[in-house]
Nucleic acid binder design. Sequence first.
DNA 1: CATCTGACGACCG
DNA 2: GCGGTCGCCAGAT
Length: 107
Amino acid sequence: MSWASVYRWVKRIPRGHVVTYGELARALRLPGGARTAGRAMAACPKGVPWQRVLGAGGRILIREPYASYQRQLLTREGVEFIGHRVNIARHGWKPAPGSKSRPHRRV
DNA sequence: CATCTGACGACCG
DNA sequence: GCGGTCGCCAGAT
């Protein structure tokens, strides 16, 4: 599995918006689901807005001290935190229709 | 080659 | 809200 497509996808996330590992995995149909997305992000190269990828429910999953850093980055981008979570309803991003992600065939 | 270990998430008590 | 289980898969030891 090449993570290149994952990073390209993450790069499309606009400033001030976020997505979850689960959504990322579903959007790209990653085998293994969200965990695979997590592994991809763990090897995230520079230039990828990794901070915009959060755990389900808008939770930050990585540990301190990175968690604080991620939160700071997001806050500076204008992402609103409510307690330890991001308001997904408000900042959640859905990939623009008509982009690279090919719709899989009907059932 | 056998095991352990995660930047996961849904579910349950 | 918190902690445990399970499915899942690639790397590291």
